[in-house]
Design a protein around this nucleic acid. Structure first.
Length: 708
DNA sequence: CTTGCTACTCTTTTT
DNA sequence: GAGTAGCAAG
């Protein structure tokens, strides 16, 4: 038998070698579904006539796509990749639309607006409709439009049941118009426009069906209506469709994902073959039992029995700590202990939480302890101001119609081109059907700022000219220097240097990619996801949200903040459907763990500088006591343990101005974190950690240290 | 037009 | 507690 197929269990083998025709693999967590998917693709590429069959595989993240490509080129050799299109729905649709730009009625150079851009555009929509942002929150309107696009509802078909709906509809029309005027698409457009194109244009549809003779979809439970429509359009005729999913891990309903697509699949493809994968290769039975105990409480689900041959393993630790800070310290301390005992390496450990804001307390604890960590998401690299600014410069060169990017940089550094001038420019350009660049060049805007505008347009034009001849890297450097942005950023402060370093990091990305075109670079950058750039080779624990943890596994998992209001989140409490999703979220978190699981919650939580007593999460009650370490009985017992663990009291003396963990700023060293504080006469001796220079001993009275 | 101040809302989760 | 919108002064 093919060596490709060794090491697969019978169910996996059945899935990998299934005959052509619609297949749904219902895969529990840790059942090797990624492996099945990759081997299925390999199997198809190997057994089908090379000239006929190509494969489209849809993964949930770009990271997964990259890993699949790596595995396949290892298994089959690099040339096999020629017949494979693999990526997320978004990246594959972006490629389709670019390829078929003419048929789609799009300019091939369209850019993709990220969430920041989308929000900025929405704000200008509301402004032009004279709507008060207080009353109609841009984010809320945008969310409604996004939902509509995910369900393939055009502006004209938007259902009007309230005054708010009418506002949304008007905003929807205007928002789309502005996107077009900017030669831009938002994330949702990538899918919706692709579907519309395939519905409208028979030739494109036929071409696409031929191009993708096999279609494979990972994380099928997280597809939305539009994505399902796309899959159906492409696969309905040849029916060579292979989906992998787990309804219990559906955690994206809030962005339009509809696990009922699993039922639609059954309806639309009556010959659908369903193959379950129940054996788990990841976790101990203790962890699986806990996971099943949690998920079992959700109604309306098929009963899946997860089993493993990895043994029972250590029991699960459930623990109450005093507050978020102690919780974080417990995590850091325990990780240290685990690493010291050699129970796991730091890089095999993850800390998960419901909301990004919770990473804060954890980060501070890691910094205080001088322990390394990796953070996924939150302050995403590509969301940083200096990165967005730099990209905006590149984007206006690539696409002079992009007014959102132009607005970002036209007066950064300050050039005397303010809001008024920009508004006028935008107005004139739109009225005459010109790009802002053309409008300036034709002298369409006069007044005091005209001179400044001319000067900027000249620069801009010269960058465009350069972009035609020079490499991306040369263009990058040239723009930074001649725009004045480099000097502007490097203002001599600590923070400025850090921001400049980030820009240099972006430069490295370009340099390493080698010979990338401006268009390709921008297209790639706008679709990177949080987990995409997380480096597995670094030996440090990972901090990430439960959502971002999907598809990953770790030997040791900590889940923090397991209290009512956090998980389940307070915004979900009035809706049983949403609480069910919160439960699935915890299920996903638990099943990431291979060996050890810690479930923590704080007794007290501070919220906007107010302290609240919290209830432990209702989900914790569903855990059978025999799976848990020690007795978790009442709150008092847990609290005693928490303080017992705390070897030294951290309660500060009332006279001290600084406490460990305080964020401070210093005139020379920039911002830092207080590690310790001890009274000396009337003064305090402080130990402060600065990211720039490391640890310093300072006097509270004389160092000029300020609390942040 | 820019800067610096005060007041205000806001915390889910993300391609 | 923090980022930002809005306002007043330079």
């Amino acid at each position: 038998m093919d060596e490709l197929l060794q090491k697969l269990n019978p169910q996996q083998l059945q899935a990998v070698t299934a005959e052509d025709g619609p297949v749904l693999v219902l895969a529990g967590p840790g059942s090797g579904k990624t492996r099945v998917l990759v081997h299925r693709v390999a199997w198809l590429l190997r057994t089908r006539p090379p000239h006929l069959q190509a494969v489209m595989a849809v993964t949930f993240t770009n990271k997964a796509a990259r890993e699949m490509r790596d595995r396949l080129s290892h298994l089959l050799g690099h040339s096999a990749l020629d017949r494979l299109a693999v990526g997320t729905f978004h990246s594959l649709c972006a490629r389709l639309l670019r390829r078929e730009a003419d048929s789609a009625g799009l300019d091939r150079n369209f850019v993709i607006f990220d969430s920041d851009d989308q929000l900025a555009l929405m704000k200008s929509v509301l402004k032009s409709l004279n709507l008060d942002e207080k009353k109609f929150r841009p984010a809320a309107i945008h969310a409604a439009i996004s939902r509509a696009k995910n369900e393939l509802i055009a502006p004209a078909a938007y259902p009007l049941q309230s005054y708010f709906d009418e506002i949304v509809q008007r905003a929807y029309v205007q928002y789309n118009a502005l996107l077009r005027a900017n030669n831009a698409l938002d994330f949702d457009d990538l899918i919706m426009e692709s579907v519309l194109l395939l519905q409208r244009d028979e030739h494109v549809l036929r071409r696409s069906r031929e191009r993708y003779a096999h279609i494979l979809v990972d994380e099928f439970q997280d597809t939305n209506v539009a994505q399902y429509a796309l899959v159906k359009l492409l696969a309905m005729e040849h029916r060579r469709l292979f989906c992998v999913g787990d309804p219990d891990q559906s955690i994206y309903a809030w962005r339009g994902a509809d696990y009922r697509n699993v039922y639609r699949l059954r309806q639309d493809f009556p010959d659908l073959r369903v193959i379950p994968l129940e054996q788990n290769y990841r976790s101990t039975q203790t962890i699986l039992d806990a996971a099943m105990a949690v998920i079992r409480k959700n109604a309306q689900r098929q009963h899946i029995q997860l089993f493993t041959d990895r043994g029972r393993g250590p029991r699960i630790v459930v623990r109450e700590l005093f507050d978020e800070r102690e919780e974080a310290e417990y995590v850091v301390e325990t990780i240290r202990e685990i690493a010291r005992r050699g129970a796991a390496q730091r890089g095999e450990i993850a800390v998960m939480y419901r909301t990004n804001a919770q990473s804060r307390a954890l980060e501070e604890a890691f910094i205080r302890a001088g322990e390394p960590y990796r953070l996924v998401g939150a302050t995403r690299f590509y969301a940083r101001r200096e990165i967005k600014d730099t990209l905006a410069y590149l984007r206006i060169v690539h696409n002079p119609a992009d007014t959102v990017s132009l607005q970002r940089v036209i007066n950064v550094p300050p050039r005397g081109i303010g809001e008024k001038t920009f508004a006028q420019l935008e107005l004139v350009a739109r009225a005459r059907g010109l790009t802002p660049l053309q409008a300036i060049q034709q002298g369409a805007v006069d007044g005091r700022a005209a001179k400044a505008l001319q000067a900027f347009a000249e620069r801009w034009q010269s960058w465009i000219a350069l972009s035609a001849q020079a490499s991306l890297l040369q263009l990058f450097d040239h723009i930074l220097n001649t725009s004045g942005y480099a000097d502007y950023l490097r203002d001599g402060t600590q923070e400025g240097e850090e921001r400049w370093e980030n820009v240099q990091e972006l430069r490295n990305v370009i340099a390493e990619a080698g010979g990338l075109s401006l268009a390709d670079f921008l297209a790639e950058v706008s679709l990177v996801s949080d987990v995409d750039d997380f480096d597995e080779r670094v030996d440090a624990p990972v901090l990430l949200t439960l959502h971002a943890a999907k598809g990953l596994e770790f030997r040791v998992v900590f889940i923090v903040g397991l209290s009512e209001g956090t998980l389940p989140h307070s915004r979900t409490l009035d809706d049983p459907e949403q609480i069910a999703e919160e439960r699935r979220l915890l299920y996903v978190g638990i099943t990431r763990a291979q060996e050890r699981l810690y479930l923590l919650y704080p007794f007290r939580r501070s919220f906007w500088s107010e302290d609240d007593v919290t209830e432990p999460s209702r989900f914790l009650r569903d855990l059978p006591p025999e799976l848990l370490e020690g007795n978790v009985g009442g709150r008092a017992g847990a609290k005693r343990k928490a303080s017992q663990w705390q070897s030294e009291p951290v309660k500060p003396k009332a006279s001290l101005r600084f406490r460990p963990g305080d964020r401070v700023s210093h005139p020379h060293f920039g911002s830092g974190v207080v590690l310790s504080s001890a009274p000396i006469g009337d003064d305090e001796e402080l130990e402060v950690f600065f990211p720039s220079v490391g640890g310093k001993r300072l006097s509270a009275n004389f160092s000029g240290l300020k609390q942040l």
